[in-house]
Design a protein around this nucleic acid. Sequence first.
DNA 1: CCGGATCCGGGTTGATACTG
DNA 2: CAGTATCAACCCGGATCCGG
Lengths: 213, 213
Amino acid sequence: MRSYKQFCGLAKALEMVGDRWTLLIVRELLARGRCRYTDLQKGLPGIATNLLADRLRELEEAGIIRREDAPPPVATTLFALTPRGEELEPVIDALGRWGVPLLASASKSDTFRGHWLIFPAKLYLKDHASDRPPIAIEVHTDDEPIVIEAHAGSVRARVGSAEKPDAVMTGSPRLIAALISGNLTLAAARHAGLHYQGDAKALKRLQPLAFAS
Amino acid sequence: MRSYKQFCGLAKALEMVGDRWTLLIVRELLARGRCRYTDLQKGLPGIATNLLADRLRELEEAGIIRREDAPPPVATTLFALTPRGEELEPVIDALGRWGVPLLASASKSDTFRGHWLIFPAKLYLKDHASDRPPIAIEVHTDDEPIVIEAHAGSVRARVGSAEKPDAVMTGSPRLIAALISGNLTLAAARHAGLHYQGDAKALKRLQPLAFAS
DNA sequence: CCGGATCCGGGTTGATACTG
DNA sequence: CAGTATCAACCCGGATCCGG
């Protein structure tokens, strides 16, 4: 991106990460950890391959990502965030949180990837029973499943499955996002088509206190 | 901005505020409160007037800013953030904080506006003596002065002057930014050309505890 | 299949000039 | 003061191609 030529931290930050697609690439690397070019492409539906290649080079020059040569027998290139790149997490979180209300009026035809739910899960869910044993909830959409785990007061979310989940939910991204962000009760989400099996209290332990139903 | 067509809060947020210049316009309105088109132009050196007009229209359609007709005798248009627009403050703060380290290698010829210092002042300074009487520090650069006020544990910064400042500092933006963000001690900044008169303890009360010199 | 490079058409940006 | 109008330069998206 062209320089703004302003002595301002915000302007300097935008020169490095303000380009189209750039922060979405960082989102992918934050959500999945280090991954291959092709994995990035799958997580960024709509990006042109030349733009992905350009951005990766710019991000590497800026010290935000790092290129690693995976050892044999894989022998492929892996892309990962540097520590400086990981410091962008608060930025992604703040922007993502600001954007959640916009999802309500999203187009029906928008693409979706399961691991994008990791961010609202981390942002909105808290462990309100830190003295209880750990729990795990599996979340299934059309795409790849994720697991939300609560353990001693902290919540983490990651791609993959749990070995013995306390609950498993299946539904449209829209329903699950509304449920996580506190705009829908479990009962209402079920009524709208969400499938939830397992311990209902597992979810209640994590949900925002906004509604107490 | 073209749609990413992704069901993701971050992507939706970037569609609204990810365009070039957009977040800098929000920065201006956050720092100065409501102001005129010409004030915005002065605070955004380098923006083309057609782009400013375009962005203001887009931001208004998005519900982020509001256009007000100032009453006579001023009779001018004022631009102000809506509540939804003000919710972008955490985003600006996170990005600005991430960008502060980049200022160290900024170009000598970058433009500067005094009120841009409001953000690092709010972000980095804390009132470490909430039981003491309020203080005010005036900060002068080539441009418009700002005031940093500490009162009962909280710090605020605004454009303008104080009636009876406890201290007044004058120096280059670079020096003052380094001092505020904790990368330079007062002694070092003075040695590098910063002029500081008044109570040195006033500044010490606010500075990050990073260095204890 | 992986990780791009190249080319091209169209849209966006930036600089300047101009106006109600 | 608060913008339009115009136009060149640049950036983006889509398609295609290519060496390992």
